[in-house]
Amino acid sequence: MHRFANPTRFMKVADRLFPFVSAGFLALLAWGLYGALLASPEDYQQGSTVRIMYIHVPSAYLAVMIYGVLAACSASVLIWKHPLADLIARASAPVGLVFTVLCLATGSLWGKPMWGTWWDWDARMTSVLILFFLYLGYIALLNAFDDPARGSKPAAILALVGVVNLPVIKFSVDWWNTLHQPASLLRFDGPAMPASMLQPLLVMMAAFTFFYLMVLVIRLRAEFAAARIRTLRITGASE
């Protein structure tokens, strides 16, 4: 395991996997979109509006999952000062932010026809909005210093503080009365959805995950290049 903690070696493996991840993303996306938009049935209550779910749920899952990655990397930065963990956290945060925005936007578009409102301050929506601000705060703190390395520690502390929000997001619909309905997917007595809807949803979630991995590799390359440029500048300036 520690072999891959070396950033150069990690990038070598990541570069080799990159074409497969990209191809996997495109194939899964095509399959998932076909299933979500054409093959899956209309809902008995919501009609075709239910198709928003195939974007909304994967976005929500990635928004939370990427925050989990961010927090794990942040703990690793604080405790072991892993350079690779720092780079993965830096590269992941904007991706997580975008999926949080996507989740809020699609939720709003879904809420208007179904509930009758774009937005309301129930516990689920508010906790996801807090997640959005945690991402923003993390990115701002990370880039608040002239020397990028100095931002890592305060940003990592903020990321860890924000972890308490994750169970609140997940269980908000169970703990309190909310406008948002309870979980359909991750619940004790299995998904509350027939296979004809579940299958395209899972394919879309896999496609989104592959998309994250693909963008992560691209962004890691950029972070590496930026780090190399900084070292070159410093050594060049001292000559």
């Binding site: 049935p41 209309e42 509930w115 406008l179 309905q181 359909s184 027939p194």
Partner: peptide, 16 residues
């Protein structure tokens, strides 16, 4: 103000 709440169950129209 009246907001409709929908539940966590999804079901194809044909099946219902």
């Amino acid at each position: 103000e009246v907001l409709a709440k929908h539940d966590e169950n999804y079901m194809p129209k044909e099946a219902v």
